[in-house]
Each structure stands twice: as structure tokens, then as C-alpha cells.
Design a binder for these strands. Structure first.
Lengths: 171, 171
DNA sequence: CGGCGATCGTTTGGCACCGAACGATCTGCG
DNA sequence: CGCAGATCGTTCGGTGCCAAACGATCGCCG
């Protein structure tokens, strides 16, 4: 169970408190929506930096590079287009990410047999070894950054976030 | 109230379902933590892109530029160091952001009277007009992206995220 | 005073990221 | 067949982002 939370409690960060002062003059401000969105972004930044420092840094791997290796590991060889979708970046961005990974010998590019326009990206032996070594460490840090939450709260957090995702990207 | 959510329901996205298949072979994987962290990042990306398209794009303003204007508006003129902290970026990054905003006449740089090393960043008249025009539209879209959540759920989401923030950045 | 660590903002180099434009390839319709 | 429109990955230009290094300034201690 997740305990209900009221708006004006001392859970707010100093920045959020100042906002209510400055913005309070305006009418019709949705404070709850503002706090939810602001904190999503704050946490995403903080967690990304934490992971790059604690898990990925020693291997000179960026969050984006890790994500690409992870998607290839979970889904298998992928067309560039699908890999970009799964990584939530544009095809232009993925070109750069794959260039970096290819330069380090972690992935390879091969022309598709079915479609002459398409490129298939695959994990190399080194790439597979790296993701299989990093994933457990990564997951341990995922557990660490959520260690103030109960298991039900972790699931509730994921559930609430999926609802936001559905609002932004309706099927 | 937030309804409790179990792990294996049909709330999962297709990607999450595939992950449980591929990763299920491993022992000791914390699926709840994995889902929470993955969705934080997914939502942060999706919301940022949504805001840049729907609210900021017409004014050629980036999320980062908007954030800097917003912080200056809420807190008043700031030393670069404090502005960088509030925007959650390094001082090096803030230099670039302020360069962009200064080039468009939205902020100014002035030497500090107290400290010769320090630079005070201030909103110009144009910058103030822009943030006061954009903030209401931005907040309306914050409400839109959370429109599938009740007000209690929005507050719960913000609360759970603050707990993650505390785990990553203990005071 | 004088000097030396700490801190300021900036610069540099490298990667990530996007929109727009491009050539190559595929597909469907006449 | 042939050609027009869609889609593929890439390139280009601009911005964001960080770590590391740098000169300028501050503050403290001898």
C-alpha cells in the first residue's frame, strides 16, 4: 500500500517551497502536476549520473551506449530503426551511438538480406560479455536508488509512470 | 488513494514483458527496481520531447533554456554557481546555456560587486516577458501529461520520486 | 604583507541529441 | 515496366552535457 500524500506537507524540497511563493500569485496553477513532472526530470538526471559514475564509468560506457547494448542483448540483432525506437532516440542519434560502440568493437553493422536500405546491428562477443558483466551491477544499483521504497511502492511508481507515458504517447 | 499494483499484470509494456523472458534466466534480478528506473527515464524523455514540441518549439527555446529562465524568474538574479545547481547541470554546461540565452537577449551577465570571480545572471525585460508567457502554457501541458492520474496519484508520484532522490543524493 | 590552497567562470575535447536534408532503396499504381 | 511517394541510414549544423585543465580571484594563515 502507498500512503496518501497531501500537497502542503514538509515533504517538499526547498526549491518547491520557493516556487509556491513565487508562483502563488498566478491563478489556476496545477501544483501537483508541476511537482510530478519536475521530479521525474530531476530523478532521471540524478539516476543517470549515479549509474554513469558507479557502474558504467570504469568501462567508459555512456548510459546511451549501455542502453543500446542492453536492448540488443534482450531483443537480439535489430534493424537500426527498431533499435532507435527501443532506445527512445532518433535514427540520427543512433547512428552516432552505434559509431561509438562499433569503434570499440562492441557491436557490428551488417546489411539486411531482406531490405537493401536496412542495417542490422549485432552484439560482438566482446559486447555480449560486457553487457552480461554490467547488467547485474546495474540492477544492484537500481535496487540501491530505490531502497527507500517498499516493493509495492516500486511497482506503484512504475505503474504511475506508465500512465504518464500513455498520456504522452497514446497507442 | 493509490491502488496497489502487483508485478505480473497486463500493465507491463511489450518491452518489459520481453525483458522478463530474456533476463528471467538470471537469479536475483530485482524486477520492480528495474521497472521503476526504466520508466523514470522513459517518461522524462517523452515529457521533455512533448514540451519542446508543444510549448517551447515555437519560441526556439530548449528545455534547458526554459529551466534557466524559470529558475531566474522564481529565485531572482543568481550567481552562475547557484543557477547551475538549481538547473541540475555543471557550471561548464551552464556557460553554454547562458551564452545561448544571452545571444537572444533573454538574460544578461554582470560582474558581482561582492566577489570578483562571480558572475550574476539576470533576466532581461524580454526574458521576463517570455517566461511569464510560457509558464502558464507549460503548466497546462504538465496537467495534460498527468491527466490519467488523480490529484492524489500526482502527489504520490512526486513523493515516491523524492524518496528516490534522497537515496541518490543524501543530504 | 605574502603566499598558497580553494573556488569562481570559462575553455577544450568528446559524446549525445535533434530536425532537416540527402541519396539509396523499396513499393504500389498506372 | 516505369515512375512517384514512402522509408531506410547517414550527414550536417546547432545545442546540451560532462570531466579536466586553466587563469583569475578570494580567504586564510604564517
Amino acid at each position: 500500500m502507498v500512503s496518501p500524500v497531501s500537497l502542503n506537507d514538509d515533504d517538499l524540497t526547498p526549491a518547491e517551497r520557493q516556487v509556491t511563493v513565487r508562483v502563488g500569485e498566478l491563478h489556476d496553477v496545477d501544483f501537483a502536476a508541476m511537482a510530478a513532472v519536475a521530479n521525474v526530470y530531476r530523478v532521471a538526471n540524478a539516476v543517470r549520473n549515479h549509474m554513469e559514475r558507479e557502474v558504467l564509468g570504469p568501462d567508459r560506457l555512456s548510459w546511451s551506449g549501455f542502453t543500446a547494448l542492453y536492448v540488443l542483448w534482450v531483443w537480439g540483432d535489430q534493424e537500426s530503426r527498431h533499435l532507435a525506437d527501443e532506445c527512445s532516440v532518433t535514427r540520427a542519434t543512433l547512428t552516432g551511438i552505434v559509431n561509438t560502440l562499433e569503434g570499440r568493437g562492441l557491436v557490428t553493422r551488417n546489411p539486411s538480406a531482406d531490405d537493401g536500405r536496412s542495417v542490422i546491428v549485432s552484439l560482438t562477443r566482446d559486447g555480449q560479455a560486457m553487457i552480461e558483466r554490467l547488467f547485474p551491477a546495474f540492477n544492484r544499483q537500481e535496487a540501491f536508488v530505490t531502497n527507500r521504497l517498499s516493493d509495492d511502492e516500486r511497482c506503484s511508481l512504475a505503474h504511475l509512470l506508465r500512465e504518464v507515458l500513455r498520456a504522452v504517447n497514446p497507442d
